[in-house]
């Protein structure tokens, strides 16, 4: 299977909830709370952030996604996170503590803190999208009062990622069918292919849009039934809120680090 086929399968699989038991609104509520909790931990206390990893680890396993999958995908943002924190060790050289006679600066501590909170935040967002499904996540955003235009843009961005990948896949198959294994095409030809891809994607998008208009689409995607709150949603929110607040405010690391 080609990379494009794998990409298309990944994109399409993101559309649906991981399980029918996943409640998008409840997931979104917990994710927002979790993000606030992670980002509000003091910068020089990375040992307190680590405990908050309980949520992505446990919830990804419960929803059947698997933490390893979430973790590996969260590494996509690692370069950006490293870029944000890379100057901290250089600029903040004040000693924070000693480890075996080696001084660890506050810059390094804050750098580790930034990396941890960046990865955990990304994992929580990925977990939301993967377990609730992209469309239900967008529906939940609407229920939380997120502007309609923004949510519709998100939905279209996602939809057209699949459209462009599908068109690229067909073009790639057509190229391979007549390419006899050749790979070293001149840059000009690749440029033309990209141009063709955009034109084809635009045409396809126009046809999809027409089909939507024909069924009464007026610029607002209708919400699915899965974005309604149920008693289980409230239980889910209550359980995770308790855990996240406990992990955020109770300094569990002090039990282990004297």
């Amino acid at each position: 299977m080609s990379k494009l086929e794998n990409t298309l399968i990944s994109i399409n699989s993101l559309a649906r909830p991981a399980t029918d038991r996943t409640d998008a609104v409840a997931m979104l509520a917990v994710t927002l709370l979790y993000l606030v909790a992670v980002l509000s931990v003091p910068l020089y206390a990375p040992q307190r952030i680590i405990w908050l990893a309980v949520y992505p680890v446990v919830q990804s396993e419960v929803s059947g996604i698997g933490f390893l999958r979430v973790f590996l995908r969260s590494l996509w943002v690692l370069p950006l996170i490293l870029l944000i924190g890379v100057f901290n060790p250089v600029l903040d050289t004040q000693t924070a503590f000693m480890v075996g006679g080696v001084a660890v600066s506050r810059g390094w501590v804050s750098f580790i803190s930034i990396v941890l909170r960046g990865l955990l935040a990304m994992q929580a967002v990925l977990l939301l999208a993967m377990s609730a499904g992209f469309y239900d996540m967008c529906g939940a955003l609407r229920r939380f009062g997120c502007p309609r235009v923004l949510v519709t843009q998100l939905q279209f961005t996602y939809r057209y990622m699949a459209v462009i990948t599908e068109e690229a896949l067909w073009m790639d198959r057509a190229r391979k069918a007549r390419g006899f294994g050749r790979r070293n095409y001149p840059l000009r030809m690749w440029g033309r292919m990209v141009g063709q891809l955009l034109v084809r994607s635009y045409e396809r998008a126009a046809r999809v849009h027409r089909a939507m208009l024909a069924r009464g689409f007026d610029g607002t995607m209708p919400l699915s039934r899965r974005t309604r709150m149920t008693r289980r949603s409230w239980c889910f929110i209550a359980a995770w809120t308790s855990v996240v607040l406990l992990l955020r405010f109770a300094d569990i690391s002090s039990l282990f680090i004297k």
Partner: peptide
């Protein structure tokens, strides 16, 4: 264009 056939079939009635 929706994630499931059910959602696709419901798209028109929901827009109504």
């Amino acid at each position: 264009f929706m994630p499931t056939i059910g959602e696709d079939v419901a798209f028109g009635p929901r827009n109504m």
